[in-house]
Design a protein around this nucleic acid. Structure first.
Lengths: 329, 329
DNA sequence: CTGAAAGCGCTTACAG
DNA sequence: CTGAAAGCGCTTACAG
């Protein structure tokens, strides 16, 4: 250890570097060591430190889809909550695909201080069996596995159903996501349930599923629209805004007038939804607070607190724009 | 080391786990160790391994703006090139902000096998002084620091100038990005130079700068448009599509007809650019190839090859859509 | 308050 | 082909 140039033992340097000097290092030595550290530009070796301590200062965020702009806000929330003590690293997979539990286990061999898992499905969590600090994001119904911060997407979904009903829609189509993530099941179930009570029919044959991709959604809509139109469908709800962009795109190509001929709505309220023409009606999800709460929870866990079955739920709400309402932008 | 249950030494297990058995482990022992590993679900501890070897199997990708959907494709290209031998971790910062060299130095204490740095500026690289395998992405003019994979954005920029000139525009405004990334300087310089030779004027007072954010761009445009309009500006070029979305949004609010009254174009060709209404004319940048080439280069470096001043340049090209051409979608 | 020593889990010459 | 041993850079009881 180079910083012994301060004329003290490695033990003392370690104490200083870790700020554990309270009543254990003389002011004199403290100053000498600090000077040496500054001078040499010494940085504690993360690997050696991690091995000795048993954990690193890394927090790993596992997520199936970082390409989603929604996610950038979640990340900045997490970073804010975690502060400078921990390094946030993203485990990325091909978009929409969840990593294999085996991959995560390999990540765990880096001894992260904590793990954040976004939008997991239950089989993934069951496979995982992780011991360290773990917080789930957007994992409805999975609070049994670990503390979770969830979004009440159901609330927004019901608002959306009410909005469409108020606009007079009676036959509605649904574009679902193929990923087996719980949140999509909740979005759909909540919307369908509320729609049913309001006299809106969402026929099984008016439901399609695609990956979370503009092109895929556009193609699916193109294939389905003739049937839907014939059946009197006047609105389509998409499980994500990304799907909705595909529908808007294809609708423009096909000359379908939005919202007069077809109303379109999505979930997520991505930044572009305010920009598209017409603006996209969407269920707004609080991305930054999601990251912030999850980061705060994980932090407490990493500091040794015991949080059993902690579950925070954040509200969602409908933002109405021109894609469902001729009056709006 | 638990897997000694195979009845061999830790050394032998290590050999097997690292696939270095060629002529060093008997078939008999090989089988026994493999069986034990499978049975116990043993995973080599990354920390211990890294400490002994001196490097980990982590590749860190440092980037100023992962919220950009463009980036998702870059990442998937990198992953594809890197394969299963390396774990890709993203170092995230607040969007648009580049990490401090000090932060990166702390990351380096994780002993990554390699480093990928996207869109750096030269002062960041000068501060960095990294020794291990390092590849730059989208770092025009910085090939002196490390092997780099660049995008020939200048080519697309010139095409854009030619396109606008052909459409008869003579007074054009420019919306730049505030981040000090080289690529933005190149985009602007190439566009301005070509525009000048084609008789297009881009007055200094018709240039604004904002962060890469739809809202910020919209606000800047709203403030500038009255002046621009008075001065006869008929087209605005944005340094990113994200800026252009803000312009489109605000133009709609202000009742400016696109492209008749104002033509709008951007750079990046993000997925949403095909979806907006009108579609956004944009300089297409090959995202996935960028990641793929950079990953391949880094891989060679990590395997010990020496690549001096390697520089790969990928082409850009203009995609014309309705925002600059009434005939297009 | 301070330092010598053990130990974290591995890998790699080295001797056999 | 195989195993005992040293060492990677740190941290943390422990003895002084």
């Amino acid at each position: 250890m180079v910083a012994e140039q301060a004329g003290v033992s490695v033990a003392t340097v370690s104490l200083v570097a870790n700020g554990k000097t309270a009543g254990r290092v003389s002011a004199d030595n403290l100053a000498k060591v600090r000077a040496a550290i500054d001078e040499l530009g010494y940085v504690v070796d993360g690997i050696g430190s991690s091995l000795a301590k048993g954990v690193s200062s890394i927090v790993i965020l596992v997520a199936p889809d970082i390409s989603n702009p929604f996610f950038a806000k979640v990340i900045s929330g997490v970073r804010e909550a975690l502060g400078a003590d921990y390094q946030l690293l993203l485990s990325v997979t091909d978009s929409g695909q969840f990593p294999l539990a085996a991959d995560v286990r390999r990540l765990m061999s880096l001894r992260p201080a904590g793990l954040l898992v976004d939008a997991p499905n239950s089989s993934f969590l069951a496979d995982l069996s992780i011991s360290g600090p773990l917080v789930l994001l957007d994992a409805p119904g999975l609070a049994e596995f670990a503390p979770a911060v969830n979004l009440d997407v159901a609330h927004g979904a019901r608002q959306l159903a009410a909005h469409l009903a108020a606009q007079g829609h009676r036959q509605v189509a649904y574009v679902d996501s193929v990923t087996g993530t719980e949140t999509f099941a909740v979005r759909r179930a909540a919307f369908l349930a509320e729609a049913a009570t309001l006299g809106i029919e969402v026929a099984a044959e008016h439901t399609v599923e695609t990956t979370i991709d503009v092109g895929a959604a556009a193609a699916a809509f193109a294939a389905a629209w003739p049937d839907w139109q014939r059946a009197g469908v006047t609105a389509v709800v998409c499980s994500t805004d990304t799907h909705a962009y595909g529908v808007l795109q294809e609708a423009r190509v096909a000359g379908v007038r939005i919202p007069e001929e077809l109303a379109v709505a999505g979930f997520d309220d991505l930044p572009y939804s305010a920009t598209s023409s017409p603006g996209l009606t969407s269920v707004h999800l609080p991305a930054a607070p999601l990251g912030l709460e999850a980061g705060a929870l994980l932090r407490r866990l990493m500091q040794g607190e015991v949080l059993e079955r902690a579950e925070v739920t954040l509200e969602s709400s409908l933002v109405v724009r021109g894609s469902t309402s001729a009056g709006a932008i």
